[in-house]
Write a protein that binds this DNA or RNA. Structure first.
Length: 380
DNA sequence: TCTGGGGTCCTAGGACCC
DNA sequence: TCTGGGGTCCTAGGACCC
């Protein structure tokens, strides 16, 4: 067998406390001597921590923790909002550097991505080190890098590398490397998944390896079973994608400073949300067939209703008509205070796919070309 | 302490069709 | 007369990721 393909060379690159680093770069004077830094929402507006400095982590602050709680733990900490503009700019700068080294680059969020490297004799650690230096010199952002023959192994390696470190798993060592982790360290194995496994006596990767695929399928359903069976064995054939996947949904939601009951206030909020999603939809040149409205009560119970329209639409008034109806139905089923309101669009159709799906001579159109040309946004 | 916002994917039941 | 099975679409809810 001379044609055996060489092992893939994949890096997982993850910026350390990215929003924090960007905040320091954005407000250098203000934050010069600040060690305890919290970046996120306003504590009095029910905000949460998006990122915090390592000093704050040592004190017990975690991301997604309510900002009010973080400030109680660290009263002397400085809290700043997420500098979204700088975050996006820095993210593009980092990606541009990574792109020079990668055969393919898949950014999975603003601060994290996978790079498929071209074939080479250079050890993976050395490429990773060169990338790390280049990123820091050119963008002032420090990243941690994990390397291996799959995305799974590269990602797990990154957590061994943090902060600002490198960790590469050599080909052939994947099975043992994965075996050194806890089940909950595996991607997509969250609290609910862990509970399901633990109640069946599976509390470790070692234990999970002893359960055959059929049993796992009965326990967990086909998707999670296949995923777990493969992952505990370090089997991951997922490709580093070029990142040109089409969008599947667009949504906007808002948590109110104080819970709302007033129907007019809710109606205003709904209009704003429809304006947001409508604008995003048109910006990418898509149309949507399904409209979803979601509410969250003070008890944190989410309710949603959605409706699929006969045609894909793009104008605010048409979206709003559906959203209004859905909100009314949600309120009838469950009156009372609303903590969060959200609007989502799905069943998206890209340019060129909608003409053949509509039959204006049979089904009356929900929007006319005049509506679309007028852009028919709210408030006009 | 009191819990954000933007996504993707999966499951399950029911309707409907063949 | 009583009973199939498969496929697709829609809807609601939930898990998980960053």
């Amino acid at each position: 067998m001379s044609s055996e393909t060489p092992p893939r060379r994949i890096l997982h690159i993850d910026a350390d406390a990215f929003y924090c680093q960007v905040a320091y770069l954005t407000w250098p004077e203000k934050l010069a001597d600040v060690e305890l830094l919290l970046v996120g929402g306003h504590p009095e507006k029910r905000g949460v921590v998006a990122s915090c400095s390592y000093a704050a982590r040592k004190r017990g602050v975690r991301s997604a923790m309510p900002m009010a709680m973080a400030l109680r733990i660290c009263p002397e900490a400085v809290a700043v909002p997420v500098p979204w503009g700088s975050v996006r700019r820095k993210s593009r700068e980092v990606a541009a550097v990574l792109g020079r080294f990668a055969e393919r680059l898949e950014m999975v969020s603003v601060d994290e991505g996978y790079a498929l490297l071209p074939e080479s004799d250079e050890p993976l650690e050395e490429v990773a080190r060169r990338i790390q230096r280049a990123v820091e010199e050119e963008t002032r952002i420090t990243v941690s890098i994990g390397g291996g023959t799959s995305k799974l192994v590269a990602k797990l390696a990154t957590s061994r590398a943090k902060p600002a470190g490198l960790f590469a798993v050599p080909p052939g060592a994947e099975y043992d490397f994965v075996g050194t982790h806890a089940l909950g360290d595996l991607p997509y194995v969250g609290p609910a998944f862990l509970r399901d496994l633990e109640k069946r006596g599976v509390g470790s990767i070692e234990a999970a390896r002893r359960i055959d695929l059929n049993t796992l399928t009965l326990w967990l359903g086909p998707a999670r079973a296949r995923y777990l069976w493969a992952t505990v064995r370090a089997v991951d054939r997922a490709e580093v994608s070029a990142g040109d996947e089409p969008r599947k949904s667009i949504s906007s939601e808002t948590t109110f400073e104080r819970d709302l009951v007033d129907p007019h206030a809710l109606e205003d909020a709904l209009k704003n949300l429809v304006g947001d999603v409508g604008q995003s939809l048109r910006k990418i040149g898509y149309r949507a067939r399904t409209v979803t409205v979601k509410t969250r009560g003070p008890d944190f119970q989410d309710r949603q209703k959605n409706r699929t329209l006969p045609q894909a639409v793009e104008t605010d008034p048409v979206i709003l008509r559906a959203a209004d109806e859905l909100l009314r139905e949600l309120r009838e089923a469950r009156p009372g205070p609303v903590r969060l309101l959200g609007v989502g669009l799905s069943n998206l159709e890209g340019p060129g796919t909608w003409e053949q799906l509509t039959f204006p001579e049979i089904v009356p159109p929900l929007e006319t070309d005049e509506d679309r040309r007028a852009r028919a946004e709210l408030g006009e």
